[in-house]
């Protein structure tokens, strides 16, 4: 889990206390994912329980200081060495919505796609604006924040390209009279272009189920 390992990685640079860790995590990730301080302490408790960090007591100013153990260092190295496994991204919800939309008679799929495209572009405008206002790459934390913003830009860009692809596929299918009755044309576009592997079975499965029940109704 990224919070656990991020905190471990921060502790490889020396002992720290909870608020310090939270501030550093947020600074290095461009403040994009605010951390709940309760979550920080819960995670620190678990890390200590698992022998990955140790409690070094109070620093005299009321801060409980934690230090990484050898096992913690090994765990951190392993985290950097292993590829990340994507968890379900928010766009799964969108893929499901589109899959249902193209299989539901009377839904204006182009409008659904355009509404999403506009919303994603607005988000892209905001992220681009944030990127412009960053102070360059003079400090490692600035570079880190910039890279996080770039990741949001690439994600939004991919989503818009996927929406363009869906729209073209939907229009082609509509022109050839395949929508919404033919299941193959319905479920094909989304899985083919899905950026995340995890979303494919859910999306395809959902759309197939709804398509077959729709055909039964007819």
């Amino acid at each position: 889990m990224s919070v656990k390992h991020s905190l471990l990685a921060l502790l490889t640079q020396g002992p720290r206390y909870g608020y310090h860790l939270r501030a550093e995590f947020e600074e290095r990730t461009g403040s994009t994912w605010p951390l709940n301080i309760g979550q920080v302490y819960t995670t620190l408790d678990r890390l200590e329980r698992d022998g990955l960090i140790e409690d070094q007591g109070d620093d005299g100013a009321g801060h409980r200081i934690y230090a990484i153990t050898e096992a913690g260092r090994a765990e951190t190295e392993d985290w950097f060495a292993q590829p990340s496994r994507p968890s379900n991204p928010p766009r799964n919800e969108l893929a499901i919505k589109l899959a249902i939309a193209v299989t539901t008679p009377g839904v204006d799929v182009e409008r659904v796609i355009q509404a999403q495209r506009s919303a994603t572009l607005r988000a892209l405008q905001d992220v681009t604006r944030a990127k412009r206002s960053t102070g360059g790459e003079s400090r490692p934390a600035d570079l880190a924040g910039l890279l996080v913003l770039e990741s949001l830009i690439f994600t939004a860009e991919a989503e818009i390209r996927w929406l363009d692809h869906c729209e073209a596929a939907v229009l082609r299918a509509a022109r050839s009279g395949q929508l919404p009755a033919v299941p193959a044309a319905v479920s094909a576009p989304a899985p083919a272009a899905m950026p995340s592997r995890t979303a494919v079975p859910t999306t395809a499965g959902t759309s197939r189920r709804h398509t077959s029940s729709q055909q039964k109704d007819r």
């Binding site: 994009t32 994912w33 951390l35 506009s118 607005r122 405008q125 944030a130 949001l152």
Partner: peptide, 19 residues
């Protein structure tokens, strides 16, 4: 068919706190 105007809302960039 549509227009998108930047919201200029810095909070829109923030995810919900990680729990």
């Amino acid at each position: 068919v549509d227009q998108a105007t930047a919201q200029n809302d810095p909070h829109s960039l923030l995810a919900d706190p990680i729990r």
